[in-house]
Design a protein around this nucleic acid. Structure first.
Lengths: 338, 338
DNA sequence: CTGAAAGCGCTTACAG
DNA sequence: CTGAAAGCGCTTACAG
């Protein structure tokens, strides 16, 4: 069943049917009614492949999700898909492996699908700079920001994220104000992850501001952003720095993994050691103990990211780099030493 | 840049370029080499919209995910996308809301995208039977099974799932063998969810086999499949059935929500009450206490589901309904009363 | 307001 | 082994 069949049955031409179905102006009510009646009768839907092939303005937004295990990205994805339903765009979702090259994948998608724009959830799309240059449509990075915000390499890349450095500062200061002095970090690999670097910078700035010592050798435990990563890191931490009173952790899943590991070692939270997370996942607020953490505002992140992208697509706006406010969630995983 | 440009630069016709790019036989090595050299030079990729429009055999598999918050589905999705990378198909993912009508969404996708087949992760695609009839391509339901397996309504629907009834029986029997007699249930709405009915049937059969009483009024607590659902259900449970010694819970997230609620009420697990989950999420094995649960085998579920779908697509095989083995995970959430 | 026609970028019999 | 051509199902100037 094609638009031709519909046209024949209506007694109109295919052009008129196309215009009716796309809500274009300049169609008589009579035609519109007749056409819709037979379209409804058959439940006819336009073939998207033909539509996209023909359309001048592409109407697909590609969403690249890197790290399907991340609960945070799923919330974002759900919100984005919802918003898009009320807009003349549809989403095309791609789930990448942790170790895939996101920029390369984006290039392939760019050529194959000709999307109107690309949303990156996670990943570091500016890493392969030359490759990124090939992508000529607006892009937005959500929940992370590019290394080099005014770099010429990323002329078409916007970003919306939490101010990771400030949030980390805030969280660290909270630990310090609760009397903690010897604070370790469980975080990502600093060389490869600018997100981890920003969070570490915020942490370190707070430590410095309060004149607290930090020895990276023994007090920074690199970890995967996963439960198992946090689990393993916690036991390393106890070996390297047995007298730590608190741990600043760069994600809730790391924190939850670490909590489990501490429990196995007979170390009680927050009695024996305090811990903070990052992200504000719902599962972290149901865990025992509830994790004290920074909640990233998924709704704002998704909304701002999308509108920045649409502004670029529809009005040719320059890329912007925005922060959305975070929320500090006081759980039960930090003990006051005062 | 189109296939025409490539053809011109190569000095071949578009047909030859198309055949080279699609690895069709009957092409000289010379032509193939020449074509690939200029394709690589420009990083040219075929326009998928035109390709799909033209192709006889569609090469897209639509994946409908219902309930993006479910960690189980994400594992499945990641495995499926991985497998598909080595096959001549690509995945088109759609994330639905919990309350969307999955069958209706599938119909729309069927008409719009003309996929080769459809994978349902969760949902009850046989629920709107007449609508489902409109879908003429092979479908597979993963991690659930249709109500009526040999129904004429679902001639093109396969399924791969855990034997929910047997698994629930097993889990319940484990509680009973540990001396539990008064066992409550936190589960889904039985009217609307055949999955919940199957799990409940397994539970009830075990209770009957061991001559244990069960009063559905006071001992079955209906709940959403979510953390908050389990959290709320636990406090209802304590009011309705304060002397329960164990709770059979229909999902790990429900169990984790319930655990948190029990902790808030000062009820200790497993000392005061025992609990079991379902799914075997990694997060449940890192929680405190570790949840005793049924682990669904995501890898087998995804692999079997995909191969059943491909068998139908490529060899016209009849739909099949398979179970994959589950694993019982002994955690720390059940106390032996013996 | 409507129709006839060109053309989007491919694939695939058909003929050579 | 290769090319010329038809056609997939749409949209959109163009003409009326």
């Amino acid at each position: 069943m094609t638009i031709k069949d519909i046209a024949k049955e209506c007694g109109y031409g295919v052009g008129t049917v196309s215009r009716a179905l796309n809500n274009h102006p300049g169609i008589s009510d009579k035609a519109r009614q007749k056409i819709y009646s037979v379209v409804d009768k058959y439940g006819f839907v336009l073939n998207q492949n033909a539509k996209k092939l023909k359309e001048h303005a592409p109407r697909t937004i590609a969403v690249l999700v890197q790290g399907a295990q991340s609960i945070l990205f799923n919330s974002l994805l759900e919100i984005i898909q919802n918003k898009l339903q009320n807009l003349p765009y549809n989403a095309s979702v791609f789930v990448l492996n942790e170790y895939d090259n996101g920029t390369q994948a984006a290039c392939k998608i760019y050529y194959e699908q000709k999307p109107a724009g690309i949303i990156f959830l996670g990943g570091n799309p500016d890493s392969g700079k030359e490759e990124f240059d090939a992508i000529k449509v607006p892009c937005v990075l959500i929940a992370n920001s590019p290394e080099d915000k005014d770099g010429t390499q990323t002329k078409n890349l916007s970003s919306v994220s939490t101010d990771d450095e400030t949030a980390s500062y805030f969280c660290t200061e909270y630990l310090i104000k609760n009397g903690h002095k010897k604070i370790c970090v469980i975080g990502g690999e600093l060389q490869s992850s600018c997100l981890s670097r920003r969070r570490f910078n915020g942490f370190l700035r707070a430590m410095n501001d309060y004149d607290l010592p930090f020895n990276k050798e023994s007090m920074y435990i690199p970890s995967m952003y996963s439960l198992q990563g946090g689990f393993d890191a916690a036991s390393t931490l106890i070996k390297k720095c047995p007298d730590a009173s608190a741990v600043f952790t760069m994600s809730d899943v790391m924190a939850m993994g670490a909590c489990r590991s501490f429990a196995d070692m007979g170390i009680s939270i927050p009695k024996d050691i305090s811990i903070t997370g990052f992200d504000g996942l719902s599962v972290a607020s149901y865990s025992c103990p509830r994790i004290t953490t920074i909640r990233q505002d998924c709704t704002s992140l998704a909304n701002e990211g999308l509108s920045s992208l649409l502004n670029s697509i529809e009005h040719g706006r320059k890329p912007s780099h925005k922060f959305v406010p975070f929320q500090f969630i006081e759980g039960e995983s930090v003990k006051s030493l005062k």
